[in-house]
C-alpha cells in the first residue's frame, strides 16, 4: 500500500457461491481483504445480499494456477475432432427406451 503504487488495494480473493438449490459452487467474482475472515465477510456483503447463496468459499487469488491463452491450442483443440468422446456419437440400440 505504498503511495503511488499502481494497486493500493488489499490482496485479492476469488469468491465462489453455492446457489440455494445445492448445486456446485460457482465463481462469482473477487474481493479485496487482508484476512480470510474479512474476505468471507466482504464476499457476503458484496455477492450474497439478495439471498444468492447458502455457502461461500474464498480463495486467495494468488493460489489459483490458471491456464494461459498460449495453452489454447495444445490444451483444447485436440478435443474438437474426437466426436466419439461425446455420448451423442453412439446410436441407442433398438429396444432401449429413453
Amino acid at each position: 500500500m505504498t503511495p503511488g503504487s499502481s494497486d493500493s488495494q488489499w490482496p485479492l480473493w476469488e469468491v465462489f457461491l453455492q446457489p440455494p438449490k445445492g448445486e456446485a459452487h460457482e465463481h462469482a467474482g473477487s474481493v479485496h481483504a487482508t484476512t480470510a475472515e474479512q474476505a468471507l465477510q466482504n464476499a457476503r456483503d458484496v455477492y450474497s445480499r439478495r439471498g444468492e447463496a447458502v455457502s461461500i468459499w474464498v480463495v486467495p487469488s494468488a493460489s489459483i494456477t490458471a491456464s494461459t491463452p498460449e495453452d489454447m491450442g495444445p490444451f483444447f483443440d485436440p478435443g474438437n475432432d474426437k466426436p466419439y468422446r461425446h455420448p451423442q456419437f453412439y446410436k441407442v440400440p433398438r429396444g432401449v427406451r429413453v
Binding site: V31, H32, Q41, N42, D45, R49
Partner: peptide, 11 residues
Amino acid sequence: PILEEDIALAN
C-alpha cells in the same frame, strides 16, 4: 476506506 467496506457499512 475501501469499496468492500463501503458496501458493508451501507448494508
